[in-house]
Design a protein around this nucleic acid. Structure first.
Ligand SMILES: NC(=O)c1ccc[n+]([C@@H]2O[C@H](COP(=O)([O-])OP(=O)(O)OC[C@H]3O[C@@H](n4cnc5c(N)ncnc54)[C@H](O)[C@@H]3O)[C@@H](O)[C@H]2O)c1
Ligand SMILES: NC(=O)c1ccc[n+]([C@@H]2O[C@H](COP(=O)([O-])OP(=O)(O)OC[C@H]3O[C@@H](n4cnc5c(N)ncnc54)[C@H](O)[C@@H]3O)[C@@H](O)[C@H]2O)c1
Lengths: 223, 223
DNA sequence: AGTACCGTGTGAACCTTTTCACAAGCGACC
DNA sequence: GGTCGCTTGTGAAAAGGTTCACACGGTACT
């Protein structure tokens, strides 16, 4: 079987949401075309994505909503609980903890760590912030599947290393930096600055090309 | 000139960060190879990305750090201030407001809106939360360039519509849903659930293919 | 001035992902 | 049972993005 593209996986998440909604609305069947419409993509894309994993539809009819949702749920691994360690109980970290959406999809934050003594010991939601030095010890008990990095930029790589050492197989990183992890550890980075800058670029495209100082090559600046 | 790929723009953001760091470390020149190494990509990719915008390097030498940083700064439109309206003063919204990183890159949140009467009037950072019904009126004064949607899922599309009506040309969306906006408005979505689910998928790949009930086609589920 | 070395900029090759287009399956209706 | 309309699943084509590989330009050193 050929490797699945990251973009396909991300769309599966979207299909899953749509299916949840359609199910709630009472829809029993949905065609690739209508599914695609709700996501603003083509129906061929939907069918191709699903075809990598099997044949879930019925010709002339479409997909059974409940069935397809369960299939995608299984494909994405959402049919189990994932134990998640959160490192960094700052702005982002506490926002994530207060969010109930993740637990609903099976992502259960079972421990929070920080290194700031003023935060350690405080309660955040149902959890008490622990000192990050206890990460290895707690991991031995709880066997985290994933780690979330919500620390300051400067600590991100060392926290990643600690999480890897603690045995996580996946890391979600909020620090705006490239992290290096072993090949067997999956890494995803949420970089809001990149998104904003991408917007900034898009909005700047309206303006004309760079006005250049005449008589000056493009290379300059060096002495 | 050919359209610039979104992936190229995102990498430019990363190059920009690396250049900031290298500059802080006192480096004057950097080769595409070393720049690539710090991002875990190939040097050809770096050169290709930059080549879409001009010739910024010197053969045999590399790129002048300060000069290249300024070029990218200009390309990404970070050489000006962007006025940003934030809608939704909940967990994510307040986390964003407490973050100083954005203002440093020129993204200035100049107004915050919510519809919850218990939040309206409260101070968050330097700003006072206003009722979302005032969005149009405030936009007339402040001329927002971009909007950030940090509201609940159910409100996201109507808030997007309101922001578009208020004249923003870019939207950063945190609600996990596909939003529809006119072609002249740039939209980027930060969907943390998708990221987590992508991790979940990656971690699930270890397990074998789906065990199927024998004697049952792939299509089933319908009556 | 000549030679050795280095690194950019870029066409071409390669690889990946998306879109096209259609045969084949399925239900409905006569 | 036959025909019609609808929709899937999928090879093949197209589009898009990345990597290769090298000519060319530039520095350094003799
Ligand atoms: N808040 C935002 O809106 C926002 C937006 C974009 C990016 N980010 C990024 O997200 C990350 C977190 O941002 P924030 O605003 O929550 O920052 P914050 O300063 O509020 O929180 C960071 C927390 O991490 C803790 N920490 C630092 N080093 C640690 C370590 N080695 N081990 C354990 N804990 C450690 C700190 O004590 C602090 O509590 C930063 O990297 C930031 O660049 C934040
Ligand atoms: N908090 C997280 O960690 C997290 C993670 C992933 C996704 N999200 C998404 O981000 C969004 C915000 O999450 P949150 O945790 O900050 O939620 P929240 O409930 O804390 O905040 C949402 C805020 O939006 C306001 N709001 C709702 N409808 C509005 C409207 N029409 N106009 C103006 N304001 C309105 C609410 O009054 C509330 O203050 C949600 O869509 C959520 O799915 C949040």
């Amino acid at each position: 079987m050929t490797r699945i593209a990251e973009s396909t996986v991300r769309r599966l998440s979207h299909y899953y949401r749509v299916l949840e909604e359609v199910e709630a609305e009472g829809g029993r069947l949905i065609s690739s075309h209508r599914l695609a419409q709700r996501e603003g993509i083509t129906s061929a894309q939907v069918r191709k994505d699903l075809s990598y994993f099997g044949s879930f539809g019925r010709r002339g009819l479409g997909y059974n909503v409940v069935h397809l949702r369960h299939e995608i749920r299984w494909i994405l691994g959402l049919d189990r609980r994932w134990r998640v360690a959160l490192v960094g109980a700052g702005n982002i970290g506490t926002a994530l903890l207060s969010y109930r959406g993740f637990a609903q999809q099976g992502f259960e934050v079972t421990a929070v760590f920080d290194r700031d003594p003023s935060r350690v010991g405080q309660r955040v939601g149902d959890l008490v912030v622990q000192d990050v030095s206890r990460l290895a010890a707690v991991a031995a008990e709880q066997a985290f599947d994933m780690g979330v990095i919500a620390t300051t930029l400067a600590s991100a790589q060392q926290v990643a290393d600690a999480l890897v050492a603690a045995g996580v197989r996946g890391i979600l990183n909020f620090a705006p930096r490239k992290l290096f992890v072993p090949a067997h550890v999956a890494l995803r980075t949420v970089d809001m600055a990149v998104e904003l800058e991408s917007l900034s670029f898009a909005l700047s495209q309206a303006r004309g090309p760079r006005r250049r100082v005449p008589g000056r090559g493009g290379s300059g600046g060096g002495r």
